[in-house]
Design a protein around this nucleic acid. Structure first.
Lengths: 173, 173
DNA sequence: TGACGCTTTCACTATTTTCTGAAAGTTCGA
DNA sequence: TCGAACTTTCAGAAAATAGTGAAAGCGTCA
């Protein structure tokens, strides 16, 4: 193996390890983040056994997290003709990754919060005491804000890269 | 206790419980989210023992998470004159809460990622093989995007409520 | 049909995170 | 200087989460 190939291996391992650690902080399972990192930096699709070997994990673990990444929409299943097993390939376009994650997190984190807040605001709508009114008002404001965030997330997730850049440039300028 | 007071208690408990569950999904410790919910919906500041009692948790747990909330900047310590113990009060303004959380998450999640990516991009700067070049390019794009996100976060976190509303209205309109 | 190659599931184990409760530390008034 | 009133820390217990490995499932082809 050439010197550069070795360096590339090292750099990739570095990236995989650190991305995994970051994933943990982000509330994402370490293995899932590591597989994603591995796949993002590999040109050709990998099979389950490749992933198991590179990350030194069990088949069950590799399988579960690969499928989870597919469920998130961050990884595609690729079938090679003449091959029976499945290969996996990560989306590599950064803006695409971002919108996918944004959509998914909105669905998993924002939408449920909205439900809770709406319910609580409803339940306290008619309260008369100062404490009751204050509670209702707080719920209402939270609901309003989160609903707003929800719309922004939809909007951003639906934008084309170019348009987002333009908007952001205006914002930062 | 009046009927409404009872209903308020129930609604609050509902909110606390559900907000705690949501916190977990968001990668935030359940107790911390619950204390935050409790404090956000309570007009007057609470002491450690109040929190322990309402949430049925130990002193150590209450203490640790109250201090953590203070460290995040979501809760203030209040000293009442003539009282030796500390009371705690949550920030209630929604936009304020949002900017605080945005700042904190940027610091904890975005900035470290930027460090990792920059390092990896550097380490692969001079690679010559197609795989090496591709790796470098991927790191570069990720770094660029995350750096950009970092700037946007700073900008948004620094905005006044009114301005943000205006911007968002333009965006959604 | 059956057995091969691969995928999927799941009971159990390991690891990580969170919580408890008690002891130690701090502050302040008498 | 003592001790009451709080706050803070932390070792170990409990709970939650993640990972393993083996068995079961599935589709294909001889």
């Amino acid at each position: 193996m050439s010197d550069e190939a070795k360096r590339l291996e090292e750099a990739r391992e570095q990236f995989v390890a650190q991305w995994g650690a970051l994933g943990t902080q982000w509330g994402i399972n370490r293995t899932m983040a590591q597989i994603h990192a591995l796949l993002m930096t590999t040109a050709q699709p990998l099979g389950t056994d490749d992933v198991m070997e590179k990350l030194q994990i069990s088949r069950g673990n590799a399988h579960t997290n690969l499928k989870e990444l597919v469920a998130w929409g961050l990884v595609r299943v690729v079938v090679k003709k003449g091959e029976r097993r499945e290969f996996f390939e990560a989306e590599k376009d950064v803006w695409q990754i971002f919108t996918t994650v944004a959509r998914e997190r909105k669905r998993r984190e924002i939408d449920p919060a909205l439900g809770v807040l709406h319910q609580c605001a409803e339940d306290s709508r008619d309260m008369q005491t100062p404490e009751g009114k204050q509670f209702h008002e707080q719920m209402r404001q939270l609901e309003e804000f989160v609903g707003f965030a929800s719309k922004v997330a939809d909007r951003v997730a639906g934008m084309k890269h170019g348009f987002a850049i333009q908007l952001a440039a205006k914002m930062l300028g």
